[in-house]
C-alpha cells in the first residue's frame, strides 16, 4: 500500500511541482540564449532589457522551485490529512505510518529532484550561453573529478545523510506543527509559531549533551577542510544521530496526534 500511496502523492503534488520544474527548465534555455546574444553586443538596447527580465525570471523560477515545492508539499499534507480530504485518506485500509511515510518519502524525492534539476538548469544556462565551450567540457569534468577525489566516500555519505536528515526534520516539524495546531479552533497561526519555537528548544534540550561534547573538543565542527580535502569529524556522527533521533521524536509526536487527536474540520 505504501507504493500506491506514494504513486498517489506524486500525482497530487506533481500537478504543480512538474509545471514549476518545466518552467524553470524552459527559462534556463531562454536565459542561456539571451546571454549568448548579449555577449556579442555591448550596447544596452531593448534586447538587453528583455534579456535582463528573462534572467531575472529564471532566477525567480529557481527560487520558486526551491520554496514553491516545499509550500506545495505542506499545503497538500494539510489538506490531505487534516482537511476534508482527510475523511477519504484516513478511512483507507492503510495505517497512519503508511500515510505519513508515503508523504515524507515523496517529499524527500522532490527535494532531491529539485536540487538535481536546478543544477541541470544551471548547466543548461552555462552551455547554451556559450560561456563554456563543449570542447572545454572535458576540463570541467576533470575539475569535478578532482573535487570528488579529494573528498572521501564516507564524507559524502555523511553529507548526504545530513541533508536527508535535515530536510526530514524540517518537513516533520511542519507535519507535527499542523497536526497539533489543528486541535485549536482559534489563533492557529500564533499557536503554530509557538509550537515551532517550543519544538526547537525542546530538541536542543533533549540533546543538550551535544553542545557539551562540542565544548569538550570531541565534536569540533562537523565538516572541515585541510590541504588533503574535505573531511568529516567525529562530531558529525554524534550530530547525525542527534538529527535522526529528533526526526524519530517529531515523527512520533505527529503520529500520536493524528492517531489519538484526529480533528478534521
Amino acid at each position: 500500500m505504501l507504493g500506491k500511496l506514494m504513486k498517489h502523492e506524486f500525482r497530487a503534488t506533481g500537478r504543480i511541482g512538474l509545471p514549476l520544474c518545466g518552467i524553470m527548465m524552459a527559462l534556463s534555455v531562454v536565459a542561456g540564449m539571451v546571454i549568448r546574444l548579449w555577449s556579442d553586443n555591448l550596447e544596452y538596447g531593448w534586447r538587453e532589457q528583455a534579456g535582463s527580465i528573462i534572467i531575472f525570471l529564471y532566477g525567480l523560477s529557481v527560487f520558486a522551485v526551491g520554496i514553491g515545492i516545499f509550500i506545495v508539499l505542506m499545503q497538500h499534507y494539510k489538506r490531505n490529512l487534516l482537511g476534508d480530504e482527510g475523511y477519504l485518506m484516513r478511512t483507507l485500509p492503510v495505517n497512519i505510518h503508511e500515510l505519513l511515510l508515503s508523504k515524507l518519502f515523496v517529499a524527500l524525492l522532490w527535494y532531491i529532484a529539485s536540487i538535481l534539476l536546478t543544477m541541470l538548469s544551471g548547466l543548461v544556462v552555462v552551455f547554451i550561453s556559450g560561456e563554456v565551450k563543449l570542447s572545454e567540457f572535458g576540463g570541467l569534468m576533470d575539475v569535478i573529478r578532482d573535487g570528488l577525489a579529494s573528498t572521501d566516500a564516507y564524507t559524502w555519505l555523511c553529507a548526504f545523510l545530513a541533508y536527508i536528515g535535515g530536510m526530514s526534520l524540517l518537513t516533520l516539524l511542519f507535519y507535527a506543527d499542523y497536526a497539533m495546531t489543528q486541535s485549536f479552533s482559534k489563533h492557529k497561526v500564533l499557536y503554530s509559531v509557538i509550537f515551532v519555537v517550543v519544538f526547537i528548544v525542546l530538541l536542543r534540550l533533549v540533546f543538550w549533551f551535544n553542545s557539551a561534547l562540542v565544548a569538550s573538543g570531541f565534536g569540533a565542527p562537523y565538516f572541515g577542510s585541510n590541504e588533503s580535502g574535505v573531511y568529516v569529524s567525529h562530531g558529525a556522527e554524534v550530530g547525525l544521530i542527534e538529527l535522526y533521533l529528533s526526526c524519530v521524536l517529531v515523527y512520533f509526536i505527529t503520529w500520536a496526534f493524528l492517531k489519538y487527536k484526529p480533528n478534521l474540520e
Binding site: A12, R79, N80, D84, E85, G86, Y87, L88, T91
Partner: peptide, 10 residues
Amino acid sequence: SYLPERIALP
C-alpha cells in the same frame, strides 16, 4: 465503505 457528510474527494 464510508460516505462522509462532506465532499472528501480531492
